[in-house]
Design a protein around this nucleic acid. Structure first.
Lengths: 207, 207
DNA sequence: CTCTACTATTCCTAACCGGAAGACTTCTTC
DNA sequence: GAAGAAGTCTTCCGGTTAGGAATAGTAGAG
């Protein structure tokens, strides 16, 4: 009758979040996930978080407690149980992590670049560049908040890892932009461009 | 009565695959996806591929043809229709790509490093290093197969992008490994190790 | 001639997302 | 201090996606 199979990774992710702060509500958990987990996993949907919490509670991996804030208001807060901590350690030690999964909509579209004109491709890549910078800032802010705090040593490692990823994306993006034909104007006429271009052309985005 | 909403991205990915080769069966499509799409998107499950093909056919975005290989055996092959090509272009031009989604089980586990001992963390990261190298080889092989072929200019860009991603992962991994306390043996005693270590220590896994 | 591997497709279940909805609380703003 | 906006907290629903098992024919290996 024992449950042999592992829970989905997201369950353990939620459980893992509870090993930092203590006693979080589903709502707070979602905030946390949105601001940290999303950079290298998914930030699960609200509904998912609550579903996971219910399941974890059912298996005794988390303990819940009703906290009344007002008369008609009760918030349920969760914390890891001893059993939960054990199970989490077991999972970390035993299970095969598997390879990262990247869903990269920009790369996917670039793959189909032959269906677009060069200007459109360029525009798309530059928009991604913007989004990347914004995301990088967010993660930087997270890191600044936890850096040098020994309690968050590992989260800090992960955040730095993430930043280096964004840097590499940035660099790769530039590579592709440089390899692409000019802009919206010249496209089939390769002759002139290849000679002296290189870095200088792509450096100063017009907008 | 018109369908206004975009199909899911995976539909377009499948449709996009059909703009390279022509007339593929679901099975072949899966092979293709496994060897190329998986690097920056998901390789959809078999069932998913067939589901997508049915939907695409229903909307007239692909055309199908029954090919008999034997008496009790018919293979359905698909190709893009003119409408499909139009729709794909429209989608590429109109829709917002959104930001990449990374599901990184190793980073997730590293985040919870405080629950493991240093040796385990190290082992995990080194295993990932191996997997990364293997993956890199696979992608390298794909690129070698299409590089310099003008028909696959864009896939080649994407493949190079992917390679640079793996390189950056490799580098980030080393960073983390260097920042981590020694191995299974010495962990709190930082003094001696930092001097001459670097590459040599972790290089030869025992098994 | 049997076994294994490959081709080809379908079915079922669980995971997961996203939005809507409902209800209460605290903060603004006039 | 009343009205409304914004934030907290949770549930429900429908649709999409993932992944494995089941089925079945075909082709080659020994």
């Amino acid at each position: 009758m024992r449950q042999e199979r592992d829970l989905p990774t997201t369950s353990y992710a939620v459980l893992g979040l509870l090993t930092f702060g203590q006693e979080l509500s589903g709502y707070e958990l979602k905030q946390w996930a949105d601001s940290t987990l999303r950079f290298y996993w998914t930030a699960p949907a609200m509904s998912q978080i609550y579903t996971e919490l219910k399941r974890l509670a059912q298996r005794g991996l988390v303990l819940s407690r009703e906290v009344g804030g007002g008369p008609g208001r009760t918030t349920t807060r969760y914390r890891v149980s001893a059993k939960g901590a054990r199970e989490l350690r077991r999972w970390l030690a035993d299970s095969d992590p598997g390879f990262p999964l990247l869903k990269h909509p920009v790369a996917l579209r670039l793959l189909l670049g032959h269906l677009l004109d060069p200007g459109q491709v360029r525009a798309m890549l530059e928009a991604y560049d913007q989004a990347l910078a914004a995301q990088r800032r967010d993660l930087r802010a997270v890191l600044d908040g936890i850096d040098n705090d020994p309690a968050f040593e590992f989260p800090a490692h992960v955040a730095r890892w993430g930043l280096s990823y964004y840097d590499s994306e940035e660099a790769a993006l530039r590579q592709v932009l440089n390899a692409l034909p000019e802009g919206s104007a010249a496209q089939s006429r390769a002759a002139q461009g290849t000679g002296q271009t290189g870095r200088s052309s792509g450096a100063g985005p017009t907008r």
